[in-house]
Design a protein around this nucleic acid. Structure first.
Lengths: 150, 150
DNA sequence: ACGCTGTTGCGTGCTGGTCGCGTTTTGCTA
DNA sequence: TAGCAAAACGCGACCAGCACGCAACAGCGT
């Protein structure tokens, strides 16, 4: 399941795209880096090895990789988008209070997805935007501060 | 349930905020205008009656109204945020293909909310970001075009 | 090695939104 | 109804995140 850079590079070639240094470095950063990198963070990682890579190159590569189905981007909040490999696609729960991000168990969306499909004919793809809420820790703190408020 | 402008104005006063022409017009636009206005659309509506109102005034008013709990903003996709009165808060389903926006039935999130609460202690507030997917019409079209693809 | 064409670096531009400043307006008080 | 402090406003500058046009460069099939 964990893709290697070489496998992803092969996907690029299959899709008719060329394999460049910048592109390979973006993939490397996605495979080996942190879990929810922004374009900016990817740029930093790429520049660590190839200092002259331009920001727009990273944006264009991410766009191309997304078009090929190799990566997806997700919005976890109001900041910049975050990117992951498609093999790692998953839903996200983000705490509105402390900003903590957690991956949603796959089956969490299932009942909702089935309900939407049956009642509205709507096929859920709940990965693109995070679902906000309040995490356990922050809920506990809030309960302590204002125990009477529902 | 449908708030009048006067009731909302009263909420402003109760919150310690002053009531200005621009502010009243923003509220009027929210009450009487379309269902998911952007800040830009609200600005246009406000300017129809008060041409000199500045964009930043609308932004600041929306921020203040949100702080007072009178309005909330929601992200339906990649474009600008949309605003509604808190009394009209609801989840949204947005079609990735055609962009159609529908309000989610209230109970659609219930099973998921309960699951998140029980298993993760996470209190869902699924209103801030829309949940994407493919609407019935677009799913039907997609099925026609590529019937063999799962 | 050659050449076609995809890709890059760079600058510039755009959208959506924020901020600081000096002026106006609101709403309290008398 | 006038006076006053603070809130809100109009305005312009600015910022983040990202897209785009163009000339130079580089991947890769031959």
């Amino acid at each position: 399941m964990t893709s290697t850079v070489d496998e992803l590079v092969a996907q690029l070639r299959d899709g008719g795209s060329r394999v460049t240094t910048a592109r390979r470095l973006v993939l490397t950063a996605l495979v080996k880096g942190a879990h929810h990198p922004t374009a900016e963070e990817l740029l930093v990682a790429v520049r660590a090895l190839a200092p002259d890579v331009h920001a727009s190159t990273v944006y264009r590569n991410l766009e191309e990789l997304e078009r090929l189905g190799v990566v997806v981007h997700t919005h976890l909040g109001h900041g910049p988008a975050t990117y992951h490999l498609t093999t790692e696609a998953h839903g996200h729960l983000v705490c509105e209070v402390c900003g903590a991000t957690m991956e949603a168990p796959e089956d969490l969306f299932e009942a909702m997805a089935q309900g939407a499909k049956r009642r509205l004919g709507f096929e859920l793809r709940p990965y693109h935007f995070a679902v906000l809420g309040v995490c356990a820790d922050c809920a506990a703190v809030a309960a302590t501060l204002e125990p009477s408020v529902g």
